[in-house]
Amino acid sequence: MSEVKFSKEHEWITLEGDVATIGITKHATEMLGDIVFAELPEKGSNVEKDGTAGVVESTKAASDVYTPVSGEVVDTNQAIVDDPSKINEDPEGAAWFFKLKMKDQSEMDSLMNKEEYDKFAKESAS
């Protein structure tokens, strides 16, 4: 599996073969608070880089989830739809959002590595 990469919209992404797994970062969940609703893209649909690919809602507000790369949705994580609190519990592990079959793996290149993202998250939070 590839190194974990991160987007400015606070998504994380890993790549295995040509299938990317995408979720939201721990930092994002801390900003959102208790997540109580999740909506995921439909299996078989195509999503475009930086386009919306879902929604999460906390007790306070709704936020769009973006996809950091383009591709076809090949799997979604029903467990976080059934129990959205799982997203707060393990955002960068068990609570992944969706898997994409990527078209253009070079889209990964512009994303941040962990060190860069941690710095970005710290700066954007202050």
């Binding site: 608070g33 208790d34 906390s58 007790t59 306070k60 609190s85």
Partner: peptide, 10 residues
Amino acid sequence: PIQYSKGIIE
């Protein structure tokens, strides 16, 4: 204060 460390649900 909108919330403290434990969060709204707790």
